[in-house]
Amino acid sequence: MSLISIKNVSKKFGKQTVLDNISLDFKDGNSIALIGPNGSGKTTLIKAILGLVLPDSGQILVKNQTISESPQYREIIGYMPQLSLFPQNMKVQELFALIENIRKEKPKNGYDVSLYQDFEIAKMRYKALGTLSGGMKQQVSAALAFYFSPEIIILDEPTAGLDPLSNEILKRKINTAQQDERLVLTTSHILSDLDEICSHVIYLMEGKVLFNKSIDEMRSQTKENRLNKMVAQLLNSKQHEQN
């Protein structure tokens, strides 16, 4: 089933085109790695899906609903931003309470507390978010993204601040989510981190989709096993095509 479909979306910041007529379709049970160089439009695309950035043209549908119609679609999305941005004075516990309150309805499958437990968030419950280290904030952020058992999970550079152990916990969680027929959308610079967790790769460049393939497809095309090798080879062949 198509959970997110992006139709001819374009966005300019000033004169710079950040998204250039992008069309994509994301299905449940997929784990999609969104990669590309800096400034290729990955974060903008994610923000467009979240409704933070409003496209100049085109449409984004979540579960066949145009997202500009109602904010309700965000109930099924969990989001972990690139930098964990939290109000400084708020305590961890207050943060969870606040979001629970705002969301009103409890998730159908109940709260997903596995990351909350694995990252031992309970221990930092009474701490103000401003006093947490970068890694701890990322842990809180990740736990919050999964907390409402969302059907769609969007992770922007999730591994950036996490220690290796936490990183492994998160990867395992992503794999489970995918097996639960949820949709996971991850961006990262570090392709090795994406190796074991993604089923599809989308490569963005200058606001355009350079390629959009499943891992199996890429593997059979490139005869490589590691993600970074496969991507490098595909990029090379693309350049040849252009030449």
Partner: peptide
């Protein structure tokens, strides 16, 4: 940050 956090809620 707080505003961001609120904006990604439904």
């Amino acid at each position: 940050e707080f505003i961001h956090l609120l904006l990604i809620q439904p």
